Lab assay of single mutants.
Amino acid sequence: MEVRTIKVFTTVDNINLHTQVVDMSMTYGQQFGPTYLDGADVTKIKPHNSHEGKTFYVLPNDDTLRVEAFEYYHTTDPSFLGRYMSALNHTKKWKYPQVNGLTSIKWADNNCYLATALLTLQQIELKFNPPALQDAYYRARAGEAANFCALILAYCNKTVGELGDVRETMSYLFQHANLDSCKRVLNVVCKTCGQQQTTLKGVEAVMYMGTLSYEQFKKGVQIPCTCGKQATKYLVQQESPFVMMSAPPAQYELKHGTFTCASEYTGNYQCGHYKHITSKETLYCIDGALLTKSSEYKGPITDVFYKENSYTTTIK
Rank of each mutant, 00 (worst) to 15 (best):
N268Y: 15
T91G: 03
D38V: 12
F32G: 07
Q216M: 11
D180Y: 10
E68G: 07
H176S: 06
T258L: 07
H48A: 14
K293V: 11
T314P: 09
T314V: 10
G82L: 14
F80L: 06
L119F: 04
T103N: 04
K46A: 13
A205S: 07
Q123L: 05
T211D: 07
L200C: 12
G53C: 11
K275A: 10
L65K: 14
G202A: 04
N147F: 05
E215R: 06
T211W: 01
V185T: 10
G82N: 09
E215Q: 07
L179A: 06
P60K: 04
P130Y: 00
K92D: 02
L254W: 03
F70Y: 11
R139C: 11
T313I: 11
A87D: 01
A132T: 04
L114F: 06
G267C: 07
E71W: 06
C112S: 03
V166L: 08
Y234A: 06
T116S: 08
S294L: 15
T27F: 11
G101I: 01
T198V: 13
I315W: 14
H90Y: 15
F128D: 03
T55G: 06
T313A: 14
Q197G: 06
Y73F: 08
E168R: 12
L65N: 09
Y73Q: 05
R141G: 07
V188N: 05
N61A: 12
Q216Y: 04
G29Q: 11
V203Q: 08
W107I: 04
Y214P: 04
Q230Y: 15
K46H: 14
D165N: 13
G257D: 09
E68M: 06
Q122T: 05
P241Q: 10
Q222P: 12
S171T: 12
K229M: 15
T103E: 03
G267W: 08
F305E: 00
Y172D: 09
R184Y: 00
T199S: 10
T76M: 14
V160G: 05
Q238C: 01
P78Q: 10
L151P: 05
Y96H: 05
F80H: 03
H176A: 05
G164V: 00
K46P: 12
E144W: 07
Y72C: 08
Q123C: 08
N49D: 15
S50D: 14
D23N: 10
T198G: 04
K106I: 09
N157L: 01
K191C: 10
E162Q: 11
Q175I: 05
K44V: 15
C285F: 09
G33S: 05
P249I: 05
T192E: 15
A108L: 05
A117E: 04
